[in-house]
């Protein structure tokens, strides 16, 4: 009898961009930022987007996150075509499905770590106690369970970014969008943050799309896409490629 090796189950598609164009009008001229861009990201992938400044990687991230709309083409996230949603529907959709991690953390300076993390839960019907409990768990996951009451100004850059990641995780989003998450950090802090993102991807199965300039940061991803002048020019694997 010969052993039958089962076919690996195909992964579902978390993200599908098809023929996406994005252009802006400036001074009567149309500036093309993204051109005929198509992309598929399976669920659970950690994708790094690299490219020089102005290559369109942040614009691409904004389109995926529903912060901007394509001029042409479609953006489908987990089966939902988001370019057809009305502005208010898109806002609701973002709250449920997307976790944002920003380069400069974008924490509320007047809130402590716990309340910053609990902020997105204000948009839910959860009780105050439940929100607090979940925020404590999220801060525990990012290794800041002992810094709940600290305000952003009293935290290091790496700690602030981990609070930002906890805030992005708190609603259990389908996808994490990270815009230069290590761009403002020293090497050691950047390493901690990247390790954390890898853990979230590997252990919690979060799909992550990360924009970065840093080749070492990109190495943490399972796939790296290179953009230039609004086009995908190259795809490479990485050290983290399973």
């Amino acid at each position: 009898m010969s052993a039958v090796t089962p076919e690996p189950r195909p992964k579902s598609l978390m993200l599908h961009l098809d023929g996406v164009d994005k252009s802006f009008k400036r001074g009567g001229q149309s500036i093309v930022v993204l051109e005929e861009l198509s992309l598929k990201v399976p669920t659970g992938e950690f994708l790094a987007l690299m490219g020089p400044s102005g290559s369109g990687k942040s614009t691409l991230l904004n389109l995926i996150g529903g912060l901007d709309r394509p001029s042409h083409g479609s953006v489908v996230v987990d089966g939902q075509s988001i370019d057809s949603l009305k502005s208010s529907e898109l806002t609701r959709w973002r709250a449920r499905n997307i976790g944002f991690v920003f380069q400069f953390y974008n924490l509320m300076p007047v809130l402590n770590a716990l309340n910053n993390v609990a902020l997105p839960l204000m948009l839910t019907n959860l009780s105050h106690a439940e929100r607090r409990k979940r925020a404590e768990i999220a801060l525990g996951i990012v290794g800041l369970g002992h810094r709940l009451k600290q305000y952003p100004r009293t935290l290091s850059g790496g700690e602030q970014q981990r609070v930002g990641i906890a805030r992005a995780l708190i609603t259990d989003p389908k996808i994490l969008l990270c815009d230069e998450p290590t761009g403002d950090l020293d090497r050691a802090s950047a390493r901690d943050v990247l390790d954390l993102l890898q853990v979230l991807n590997r252990d919690l199965g979060k799909t992550i799309v990360m924009v970065t300039h840093d080749p070492q940061a990109a190495e943490c991803a399972t796939r790296i896409l290179h953009l230039d002048k609004g086009r995908l020019i190259r795809e490479s694997g990485s050290g983290a490629n399973p």
Binding site: T91, L119, P120
Partner: peptide, 14 residues
């Protein structure tokens, strides 16, 4: 400006 934009990004309505 950035705080307000952050709130809007994470799902706060207008």
């Amino acid at each position: 400006g950035r705080e307000i934009a952050t709130l809007r990004a994470i799902g706060f309505h207008r």
